[in-house]
Design a protein around this nucleic acid. Structure first.
Length: 425
RNA sequence: GGAGAGAUGGCAGAGUUGGUUUAAUGUACCUGAUUCGAAAUCAGGCGUACCUUCGCGGGUACCGGGGGUUCGAAUCCCUCUCUCUCCGCCA
């Protein structure tokens, strides 16, 4: 949620930002509506506060009169208060509904893109921030896609997943399962080495948490919900991990807060099935190691680049061909101010697969969840939040299997040997 | 799942026969005095949000969440959530 203060003071920049997200001149008018609604809110607030103040004053007088035994006079004042109460009730209801309307408007406005974010409407207009310069791995014409390799080497089984749960829930087995665990362990170790605190969070969160990171209200359909207990299965570790600091005021000396977590991620992906979603390309449950940072506003973009370098290092260690995209305004997520996507080259499918998304949210999340820090002078300010996948497993596995297939078997990158215990599948 | 107790400011902890309590007090923290410096001591300060003011300041709300009674609620009533103790079940 954008800050009202920023909209008020920096309106043109916000409007320009929304235009970069391809908002029409018509849509952008909501900014003016928001400001108008806020004026309305403030006027009402003032009136309400003044009325309550008067009421409090009279109540105190009544107390004093009662103490002195002047019952008659007290009764007169009571009548006055009764009138004020009617007015208060009206004002309270109106202020509440104005606030609700204002919040709804604010919820509907996406984050303002950073000035370095390119214009554009579609994924095709994303800027390649770093391309793959070397040749792709040489595979024979009859190279197998990962779902065929999985069958050949008995690594994971989709049909079995259907029997247990439904489509999109693969069952990993044998070396396939071991490879998953190896990757998780490797990613976590690298994150801890980079200074992130390891977190093992709950996989279900309450409504408040889902709201704070912005999954609610707009991404509700993406999450699995346990109605009985009113809990949601997490679509990413970002939700529980970022909520660890929800509502906190962090002393400046404790910044940045850096956390990492491995969790399975559950996504309904309703209506998202089509031609390009075979195998591990899109599943309902996948594993991911996530990085979360809370940063001082002056340092957040430096931190973003640092996270990108961290992911880059992982890709290099896994010896996978990849490229980095700087997302254009139109392709960026609702909450993000700037996002880099990592794509891995899937040799047999001959296409790029998204494996990581690293974003800076500025104060968009922290405003909603009231995540702040106290600076050296004691002043309180909203912190910046960032997160990124480092990395998402399923598609990494897909690329790894496809790119590394040889007539003798599938080779495992050297860096994983100590985790897998085998060098070849 | 059953029975009981409880939830107050960073922490501890009063207040629960409704009314100068504007939430006492301790502790932590900050500033100053004292000191060569420190400890100890003394003095002052010390929540969050919103509104208002050029500023000093002023106002409103918040004692787990929500609702109610009342001129007035931390205090009374309803409801939800959570915590603790005991019992049951259990990885």
């Amino acid at each position: 949620m954008l800050q009202l203060k920023v909209i008020r003071e920096d309106k043109q920049r916000i409007i320009n930002g929304l235009r970069k997200r391809n908002w029409t001149a018509q849509q952008v008018k909501i900014i003016d509506d928001i400001l108008k609604k806020d004026d309305e809110r403030r006027a009402n607030q003032k009136e309400l506060d003044d009325t309550l103040a008067e009421q409090n004053r009279l109540a105190k007088q009544i107390g004093a009169l009662m103490g002195q035994g002047k019952k008659e006079e007290a009764e007169t004042l009571k009548i006055q208060v009764a009138e004020l109460k009617t007015l208060t009730k009206t004002l309270e209801e109106r202020t509440g509904s104005i606030q609700q309307q204002l919040d709804n408007m604010l919820y509907s406005v996406p984050n303002c893109p950073h000035k370095s974010v390119p214009k554009g409407k579609t994924p095709e207009e994303n800027k390649v921030a770093k391309d793959w310069k070397k040749p792709f791995p040489a595979l024979p014409e009859d190279a197998l896609p990962h779902w065929e390799l999985a069958k050949k080497y008995n690594l994971f089984d989709f049909e079995l997943g259907v029997k247990l749960t439904g489509s999109g829930f693969p069952v990993y087995r044998g070396k396939g399962a071991r490879l998953q665990r190896a990757l998780i362990q490797f990613f976590l170790d690298e994150a801890v080495k980079a200074g992130y605190e390891e977190i093992l969070p709950p996989l279900l969160v309450n409504e408040e948490s889902a709201r704070a990171t912005g999954q609610l209200p707009d991404k509700e359909a993406q999450m699995y919900k346990c109605d009985e207990d009113n809990l949601y299965l997490i679509p990413t570790a970002e939700v529980p991990v970022t909520n660890i600091v929800r509502g906190d005021i962090i002393p400046i000396k404790d910044l940045p807060v850096t956390m990492t977590a491995y969790t399975p991620c559950f996504r309904r992906e309703a209506g998202a099935w089509g031609a390009h979603v075979r195998g591990l390309n899109r599943v309902h449950q996948f594993d991911k190691v996530e990085l979360v940072r809370v940063e001082h506003p002056d340092n957040s973009y430096k931190a973003l680049e640092g996270m990108v370098r961290h992911v880059e290092k992982l890709m290099n260690k896994l010896e996978l061909p990849f490229r980095i995209l700087l997302l254009c305004g139109g392709d960026m997520g609702f909450n993000s101010a700037k996002t880099y996507d990592f794509e891995v080259w899937s040799g047999a499918q001959k296409r790029w697969l998204e494996v990581s998304s690293v974003s800076c949210f500025e104060t968009f999340q922290s405003n909603r969840m009231k995540l702040r820090f106290r600076d050296a002078e004691g002043k309180i300010e909203l912190a910046h939040t960032l997160n990124g996948s480092a990395l998402a497993l399923a598609r990494i596995v897909a690329a790894l299997l496809e790119n590394n297939q040889t007539p003798e078997g599938i080779t495992i990158p050297k860096v994983l040997h100590r985790y897998t215990g085998f060098k070849m599948i």
